[in-house]
Design a protein around this nucleic acid. Structure first.
Length: 465
RNA sequence: GGCGACGUGGCCAAGUGGCUAAGGCAAGGCUCUGCAAAAGCCUGAUCGUGGGUUCAAUUCCCACCGUCGCCUCCA
């Protein structure tokens, strides 16, 4: 068994084999820092987080690099509008981004390089490309010469002639070819600028990722990821620059996630509006529910975000949570039938994930196992007997970034004491068979957002809102 | 116009050339419970339409209808 990933470059699923031993060099395109992230970003980063978790689960050693684009037209524009600096803007949104990703249980990358910290490498690469005849200077700008790159278009699978035929881009007459793109842009007055052989300027959009990859990973990487929207031109240009500069194959696997949208609308993206921000989503749903909702669809299929859909995922998680709620440390005691179920679930989980990250199928394996655990408990298995299977369920859930913890709702000490008193009162009434009065107390608790459950072990309660 | 993807039970969504077409939500019935809640059990689909290939297709091919993505900035 081996992991197969769909590679955009070959348009096929191929077996994943790292270039060097079990070391995986992975680079995922990070956000442009001119505004806050939205749940479309969350989708992409949840998927690549899951890929990373799975690679680690499979025994690979992963170096995950994710950039921050902190210099770009939009950022300059936004900084000017908000009367601030690009640095301040970047700092603000980086802090927000990282904390939002944390709250979605997305593990941090190993390195977060920033474009502005890669300027010397960007200049070195640009210079190198000019020397090779792959780029040319024009009034302080430097453009990549797409016609000099014989396989330009190989990633997005289109030819220059096709693209130019249907071009919607305003043509800059000075350029050699309409598709030539900027590696370096001369700065206008008042714009951030760095000294360069071509005068004061700043990097183009695509070269930063090539430079940061070179700095962090070297000339060749295993996995390059991002949303399908950055496939062209961003990744196409990246591959062109990097390979023209190094003369080597750049990324071995290109992985692109499909995009998120709202029902009946186009993709969620910042320049179209119609965004749902991460704190808003988290105020209504647990991070587990958001992840389960997203991972319930294959990453290469577009997904419509609906509140009902996430709610359904939340309710589904209750079944998984119930399965592990009384988990104790696994010991020698085990339920053989259950151990068999756990082994089957693990096998199914791996089979699914090996097949190009079939997270929906993997989730199915989790539900199968949860059902067996809940059934075994119902049939009288002790916590000790359930423990090993529960450990498996928690381990596999964690690969998907699911904690299976009850969503927490803060309860003050005062409130807690009051609830305990009411629960005790109700139980006294029940013991006296005064059920009508007991139900009255329960209604009172429900009113407070408290859900109670009676069992042989006593009455438990939880706050649900 | 070019390239590409998708259309599976009420909703979401895996999947396979022939073996019971996963799983979740919702609905109905049942078990448990004083009643509930939770959990468990049971109940439903011939896979957009029309052709073709094949002993056999939901699964391959073609056409059509519908939805969507990229071709400018975008995860």
């Amino acid at each position: 068994m081996a992991l197969y990933l769909y590679n955009t470059l070959s348009r096929r699923k191929t077996e994943f084999v790292p270039r060097v031993g079990n070391h995986v060099a992975m680079y995922v395109c990070g956000p442009n820092l001119y505004g806050p992230a939205h749940i479309g970003h969350a989708l992409s980063y949840i998927i690549f987080d899951t890929l990373k978790r799975y690679l680690k689960f499979r025994g690979y050693d992963v170096k995950h690099v994710q950039n921050f684009t902190d210099i770009e037209d939009r950022i300059i524009e936004t900084a000017r509008k908000e009367n601030t600096t690009i640095q301040a803007l970047a700092e603000k949104y980086i802090a927000r981004f990282l904390s939002e990703m944390d709250s979605l249980n997305i593990r941090r990358a190993d390195v977060y390089p920033r474009a502005t910290e890669a300027i010397p490498t960007i200049i070195k690469m640009t210079q190198g490309l000019i020397e090779k005849g792959m780029a040319y200077e024009l009034d302080g700008d430097v453009y990549f010469r797409v016609r000099a790159d014989e396989d330009y278009g190989k990633l997005s699978h289109r030819s220059l002639d096709e693209m130019e035929a249907g071009a919607r881009v305003a043509v800059d007459e000075r350029k050699n070819d309409p598709m030539d793109f900027a590696l370096w842009k001369a700065s206008k007055s008042g714009e951030p600028a760095w000294d360069s052989p071509w005068g004061p300027g700043r990097p183009g959009w695509h070269i930063e990722c090539s430079a940061m990859n070179l700095e962090q990973h070297g000339p060749q990487i295993d996995i390059h990821g991002g949303g399908q929207d950055v496939l062209f031109p961003h990744h196409e240009n990246e591959i062109a620059q990097s390979e023209s500069y190094t003369g080597k194959e750049f990324a071995h696997y290109w992985v692109h996630n499909a995009l998120l949208h709202l029902p009946g609308q186009e993709k969620m993206t910042r320049h179209l509006g119609g965004l749902i921000y991460i704190p808003d989503a988290l105020s209504r749903h647990s991070s587990d529910a958001i992840r389960a909702f997203i991972l319930g669809t294959h990453y290469r299929s577009p997904l419509a975000w609906t509140e009902d859909g996430v709610d359904a995922a939340e309710r589904g998680l209750d079944k998984l949570r119930a399965a592990v709620k009384d988990a104790v440390a696994p010991g020698p005691e085990a339920n053989d039938a259950l151990s068999e179920s756990a082994a089957q679930a693990r096998e199914k989980f791996i089979t699914m994930m090996d097949d190009d990250l079939n997270t929906a199928g993997a989730l199915g394996a989790l539900y199968d196992l949860a059902r067996e655990i809940n059934r075994a408990r119902g049939e009288g298995s002790s916590p000790a007997q359930l423990a090993a299977a529960q450990a498996t369920l928690l381990e596999l859930a964690d690969v998907l970034g699911l904690t299976l913890r009850e969503p927490t709702h803060a309860v003050s000490a005062d409130e807690s004491a009051k609830i305990d008193a009411l629960v005790a009162e109700r139980n006294a009434l029940r013991a006296a068979k005064k059920y009508k009065e007991a139900d009255g107390v329960r209604a009172q608790l429900t009113e407070m957002g408290i859900e109670i459950a009676d069992s042989a072990q006593g009455t438990t309660w939880k706050k649900t809102k």
